[in-house]
């Protein structure tokens, strides 16, 4: 806290002293959204210190829920290493929720759902892009924005069917020979994931 205060203090002092030389503002300095009476009384008490910045000064508020239904769904689809879709406007996405495949259209009820290994398809007109997600979460907001977060997602044509068959056979055998609960669960996950990939490839 004090570290912050001294930083702000030194910044405002240098800003005042070198105002004539360089009046360029720091990129982090945003127009204050605090109310004017607060700023006046702050300046009385601490004339050399900038008024505090609040998170609302740095973060844009979420777009409000429009009264009429938008025709497109805005999708943000992120992985740990990349952002596959950013603010992309599509017609529909079908996500593999734990409760079953879920079609999301604009104006969907706000929901948070866990995703199971399965196929996600992004429909854009007649164009359908299919991904296989390992697991993750989807956040569907009231303003027709869907945030989809997955650990690993691959386009379907990157999957090698022979590897899938091999994995499925491997884990079926492992489940039979598993002794502890943990080993059994691991084998079970293996079977589930591989059968999901198999179903995605054949179906």
């Amino acid at each position: 806290m004090f570290k912050q205060a001294s930083r702000l203090l030194s910044r405002s002092v240098t800003a005042v002293s070198s105002k004539s030389a360089t009046s360029r503002a720091f990129s982090s300095e945003l127009p204050s959204t605090l109310d004017s009476t607060f700023i006046e009384s702050w300046k009385k008490v601490a004339p050399n210190m900038d008024p505090p910045q609040t998170p609302s000064a740095f973060m844009k508020p979420r777009p409000s829920t429009p009264s009429s239904l938008p025709t497109k769904l805005t999708v943000n689809f992120v992985l740990p290493y990349t952002s596959e879709l950013t603010g992309k406007e599509v017609d529909m996405v079908i996500i593999p929720a734990t409760t079953g495949q879920m079609g999301v259209l604009p104006g969907h009820v706000p929901t948070i759902t866990e995703l199971k290994p399965g196929i996600m398809s992004v429909h854009e007109g007649t164009d359908v892009k299919k991904y296989f997600l390992s697991s993750g979460f989807a956040f569907l907001h009231a303003n027709s924005v869907a945030d989809i977060i997955a650990v690993e997602a691959v386009p379907l044509d990157h999957i090698d069917p022979s590897q899938v068959q091999k994995g499925l056979a491997d884990f079926t055998q492992k489940l039979a020979s598993a002794t502890t609960d943990l080993e059994k669960a691991e084998a079970q996950i293996g079977i589930e994931v591989h059968s999901a990939i198999n179903a995605a490839l054949t179906g």
Partner: peptide, 11 residues
């Protein structure tokens, strides 16, 4: 684990 299994099934 799920992500690893998916990665291992890639071309």
């Amino acid at each position: 684990i799920c992500a690893n299994l998916v990665r291992n099934c890639l071309k």
